[in-house]
């Protein structure tokens, strides 16, 4: 009994330290990857896909001419379809501006990652949107589907598709 107690006392600091550092790292990782994303609108992907026939994700999440990914659509992109005549739309376009409070993304990568959507989506070996983001096309809310995108998941795909896994491929 006494031996057990001394053993417990011996290991307790290690356990506490490990648990504490885990919490700290987890918080830092969550902050870096925007786990607490702020979504201002209850956006419904599924209704947009069915009603407005936006089956191609690139209609709103497209590319610039130089190959940069646009990311989250702006209010101007919404106005391509919504003319803003109904009372609900009028209130929205009056109240929501891009500059006020932009949406934050679930999937923000840290600064050291150079992730090119163009290179992953339009190359000879391509991925699908859902393979990283989850089935967004059928989601009714802005909730997170697939969670964080750790580097191991990128590397798994690269290894299976025989794409180079050298650091410079994605990091800068």
């Amino acid at each position: 009994m006494k031996r057990l107690r001394s053993l417990l006392l011996f290991f307790l600091p290690f356990v506490v330290f490990t648990y504490g550092s885990f919490i700290v790292f987890q918080a830092a990782c969550d902050r870096a990857m925007s786990v607490q994303a702020e979504k201002l609108l209850p956006f419904n992907h599924k209704s947009h896909v069915t009603k407005y026939d936006a089956s191609d994700c690139e209609l709103c999440h497209g590319y610039y001419d130089n190959g940069r990914f646009k990311g989250l659509p702006t209010v101007g992109d919404c106005k391509m379809c919504h003319d803003g005549n109904t009372a609900k739309e009028k209130a929205f376009f009056k109240g929501f501006k891009d500059t006020d409070k932009p949406w934050t993304s679930w999937v923000k990568q840290p600064d050291l990652v150079y992730f090119s959507h163009m290179a992953v989506m339009k190359n000879t070996k391509t991925a699908r949107c859902a393979s990283c983001h989850g089935d967004k096309a059928n989601s009714m809310t802005t909730a997170k589907i697939k969670g964080k995108m750790p580097m191991g998941r990128c590397m798994d795909c690269h290894t299976s598709l025989k794409i180079s896994n050298a650091c410079t491929v994605c990091h800068d």
Binding site: Y63, N66, G67, R68, S116, M118, A119, T124
Partner: peptide, 18 residues
């Protein structure tokens, strides 16, 4: 400046050259 290479690669793929 390997980030410039990545930038140029994006531009080439946007043109359709993979």
């Amino acid at each position: 400046c390997s980030h410039i290479w990545k930038r140029e690669r994006d531009r080439m793929i946007a043109k359709g050259i993979t």
